[in-house]
Design a protein around this nucleic acid. Sequence first.
DNA 1: CGGCATCCTCTTTGATACTG
DNA 2: CAGTATCAAAGAGGATGCCG
Lengths: 210, 210
Amino acid sequence: MRSYDQFCGVARALDLVGDRWTLLIVRELLITDGARYTDLQNGLPGIATNLLAERLRQLEENGIVTREAAPPPIATTLFRLTARGRELRPVIKALGMWGRPLLDDIPKGTAFRSHWLALPLESLLTDHAPERPPVTIAVHTGDQPITVSVDGEVRVRTGVPPGPDATITGTPDLVVGLFTGEVDLKTAASRGLKFHGDINALRRVQPAAS
Amino acid sequence: MRSYDQFCGVARALDLVGDRWTLLIVRELLITDGARYTDLQNGLPGIATNLLAERLRQLEENGIVTREAAPPPIATTLFRLTARGRELRPVIKALGMWGRPLLDDIPKGTAFRSHWLALPLESLLTDHAPERPPVTIAVHTGDQPITVSVDGEVRVRTGVPPGPDATITGTPDLVVGLFTGEVDLKTAASRGLKFHGDINALRRVQPAAS
DNA sequence: CGGCATCCTCTTTGATACTG
DNA sequence: CAGTATCAAAGAGGATGCCG
């Protein structure tokens, strides 16, 4: 990208990460640090392969991403964020918070990957009862199940936990609305969301009112 | 801009503000809310006029900017951020903080406008002695003088105050380094920066160590 | 398969000139 | 002052090919 040539931190930041797709690549790497090229392609539906390759090259040049040849067992390259790259988390978080209301009406044909829920859920949710034993919530939505685990902090990972305290199944907008408390369980259920298990697991992490 | 079509707050935010120049326009409006078209052109050196016009149209459509015909005395249009637009401040702030280290080596030919210092200084500085009487620091750098006023909070405005407690004159990189404390006064002076007045006015707002 | 490079088309940006 | 009009150059999107 052409530089803005301005003595301003915002402009200089955008010189490095202001290109189309660049911040979404950073998003992907914040979620799954150590991603393969094809993982990135899958997490970035719509990106042209030459663009992904070029952006990764630029990010590497600028010290935001490293590429490492994975050790012998795996015959692949892993892309990771550098420490400097991980410092972009507040930027991604701020953008995600600002964009949150925009998820309320979504045109159809919009792509979804369940791991995209990781960053917003970790930003929005907190454990209000850190002294209590850990709980896990299984979430079935999108391409693969994810697990919200609560033990003092809230972590989101892919996969299903062994014995989840609660299980949520439904469309991503209802899942987000339910977690944030913007949609109550009854309303969500009437729109097709299924909830099983301990409702207190959910209440424990919701932001403000229930 | 073409939408990313992803159910993700970051992607949806970038659908609205990810275009080239867009976030810099928001930066300008965060600094001088109520700007004329030509003010924006001046604050965005390098932007093509058709792009500025188009971006303003898009921002207006998306509820981020309003355009108001100023009342009779002035025969001009003023552009302002909406409430929703002002909510982008954390995004701009996060980008600016991340970009701060990039200001340490700046290619020559880089444009500078002194009002660009407003956001970073207000983000980085705090009043450590809010109980003491207000002080003002005049800063002469770039195209016009600015004033850092300290009275419980730190505010930056354009223009010179009547009787400043301190006056700083020098290149923008030295001014920033001095305020953040990354460069001490001796070093800054040896590189051409001039400081007059009460050194305590400066110490009162510097982030951590002196 | 994973990780690209090439080629072609289409869109966006940049620079400049001109206007109510 | 606040834009519109025009045109060349750069960038993005999409398909396909290549190589270990």
